[in-house]
Nucleic acid binder design. Structure first.
Ligand SMILES: [Mn+2]
Ligand SMILES: [Mn+2]
Ligand SMILES: [Zn+2]
Ligand SMILES: [Zn+2]
Lengths: 131, 131
DNA sequence: TGGCGGAATAGACTATGTCTAAAACACGAC
DNA sequence: GTCGTGTTTTAGACATAGTCTATTCCGCCA
């Protein structure tokens, strides 16, 4: 998947900085914080500023290539997996794992009186077991 | 419900500041941020410090009288409702609503291979409808 | 070559939360 | 009552996440 063309098709003017950010965050399987992205991207592109990383991540979210998730205290994480899915948080390590949408079934949310539910997810916490 | 005795029974030395914080947060139906608690408590107890409010809230959490929830970007909220339940977040107003545990049924979480699930909840987002 | 508009940059600024060091307080021993 | 000790409170420093602003930079075209 060509990140450059992906950006163009979503109406994002590609610049070297934006490309570096997008390539890193879109290929990551992890749920990264903005500052963690900045850390990593600076290795390849040492002059990139913090503001540009934040601006690019927010732009990717606005254009639908990325999602934010509120899973940890104090910081948002960026998720390249934009389709609906659930999350498991390891309470010891802080690691976040994706849980496929149909691994878990939720029922009753449509019957809630007075609530217009647009989206939902299950957030599970515990310990990852040794494989 | 006597907050003073509740604190004693949970091994919390009651002080005027702790009592003011506990009485406010435990009787609140809302999901309050620490600084919002500070704002309110200062009206009754103008000399209470920010550090004491944070310390007391964290102590109440440690003693099991209060829970933290990660539902909004950038801040934790304190929930006096400590039993398991779900949450609905109004995306327009930011208001958080409690959803009773058995209003929603979740299945499949026990079958997840490699994950030792200790707790879970459903987080729903959308708009509260006019009653 | 010069001008224009968008993008990038450094750093200021705000907000949330923790930590530290000093002062205040509670309480029992004398 | 005074003292000593441990606990609590306090102000403010500090750390971190995130936004904003003013300036510089850069690509493009007249
Ligand atoms: Mn971050
Ligand atoms: Mn707060
Ligand atoms: Zn995810
Ligand atoms: Zn709640």
């Amino acid at each position: 998947m060509d990140v450059l063309n992906l950006m163009r098709r979503h109406g994002i003017q590609p610049t070297p900085q934006r490309l570096a950010v997008a390539e890193h965050v879109l290929s990551a399987r992890a749920h990264l914080t903005a500052d963690r992205v900045w850390e990593r991207v600076r290795r390849k592109c040492p002059t990139v500023s913090r503001a540009t990383v934040y601006n690019t991540l927010n732009l990717l979210v606005k254009k639908g290539l990325l999602r934010t998730q509120i899973l940890k205290e104090g910081t948002v994480v960026f998720d390249s997996h934009v389709e609906a899915h659930h999350h498991f948080v390891d309470v010891q390590t802080g690691r976040i794992y994706d849980i496929p949408w149909n691994a878990i079934r939720v029922s009753g949310h449509a019957a809630l009186r007075g609530f217009d539910v647009r989206e939902y997810q299950v957030i599970l916490r515990g310990r990852r077991r040794a494989k």
